[in-house]
Computed example of a mutant assay.
Amino acid sequence: MSDSESTVSEAVQLFAQLEWVDLTHSLEEGIPSVPSHARYGHTLYQSYDRGDPACHYRISMGEHTGTHVDAPLHFISDGAAHYDIASVPIHRLVGRAVTIDVTDVGPGETVSREHIEEWEAEHVPIEPGDRVLFQFGWDRYWSADDDANEFLSDWPGLAADAAAYLTESDVRLVGCDTAAIDAAGAEEFPAHYELLGNETYIIENLTNLEKLPPESLLFTFPLKIEEGSGSPIRAVALVD
């Protein structure tokens, strides 16, 4: 057996020993969508009941529908960081993730740099190349019921100094279980500009973060959309 075959075999055996945690919301009509974004639609095109030989649907949605990743193009209009989701190096979206419990942050409030540093002192340090996930617990409000949706009301987010700390730490990606990494009502989008401007990608609308330990192995695969500002993803974490 060659060295490469041995490495692949070891990886397969390791993956079989780990638990797979799905961090992705299901796509269905009625799920939350910020007012400026397209809503999700699911239309039947072929049906066995109508005598068709197959079944298939047309889906319509925005690039930032459901659990999704933001490309720099989403907020950065020029410069080295101005590129689309198809140009994001896929290896930067896979790797060690640190999950920080910030459920003590209230509606409309923000996580500060000090908050992150205190968590690191009690758990594990954030290392260059990491992905950092923030568990606000906001996914408990996710609903496909248009008339009972609290998800888009007064969600918390990341403060400007916290976003700057993460880019200084050279993290690759920042994720959250809220509608956006900036808190609701933020008009200047400091976290978006700081992170995307430094090629730190953003994942929003995650779920099940409470099932993750402080360290996990994260996989987040976007669609390869030319000139895309983002893409829905299937986000999965591997844990012991």
Rank of each mutant, 00 (worst) to 15 (best):
G95P: 03
L73G: 07
A237V: 04
L212R: 01
Y201A: 00
I31C: 10
Y165A: 11
P222I: 13
W155C: 01
D147Q: 15
E150I: 01
I85V: 15
Y45V: 05
S2C: 02
S112L: 06
I85P: 07
A160L: 13
V174N: 04
N198A: 07
A179I: 13
Y83H: 10
H82K: 12
F189T: 15
D70N: 15
D146P: 02
E204Y: 11
K211W: 03
P72A: 15
D78K: 12
F219H: 06
R58G: 01
P107D: 09
D78N: 06
P128T: 13
V105S: 12
R131Q: 08
L27E: 04
P214H: 05
V124E: 07
D139H: 06
D240K: 00
T65D: 14
S169I: 09
W119G: 01
A180F: 14
L73N: 14
S33F: 07
P32N: 14
R172P: 03
T7Q: 04
S229E: 15
W20Q: 08
S6T: 03
A86T: 07
G66I: 02
L195F: 12
R140L: 08
E117G: 03
A179T: 13
R96T: 13
R50H: 00
W20G: 03
V88F: 11
D146C: 08
Q17P: 01
L223Q: 10
R58A: 04
I225R: 05
G106E: 11
F15L: 12
H64F: 13
A163K: 15
I85D: 12
F75H: 15
F219P: 01
P89S: 09
A80E: 09
V111N: 06
Y40C: 12
V94H: 02
P232E: 07
D22M: 06
I233H: 04
G66M: 06
V34H: 15
D145W: 11
A160H: 12
D182P: 14
D78G: 01
Y40M: 10
A38V: 14
R58P: 00
A38P: 12
G79Q: 06
V111F: 09
L238M: 05
E199R: 11
S4L: 05
D104G: 06
G106I: 09
A16H: 04
K211H: 09
E109W: 10
G185E: 11
V88S: 08
D146A: 14
L93F: 03
P35C: 13
A97R: 01
E215V: 09
S60W: 15
D145S: 11
N198C: 10
G228P: 05
G95S: 08
G228E: 10
Y45T: 00
T178N: 11
H91M: 08
A80D: 07
S9N: 06
W119C: 04
I233M: 07
A159M: 05
H115R: 14
P232T: 04
H115W: 12
I90L: 13
A237R: 00
V98G: 00
T103I: 07
R234D: 02
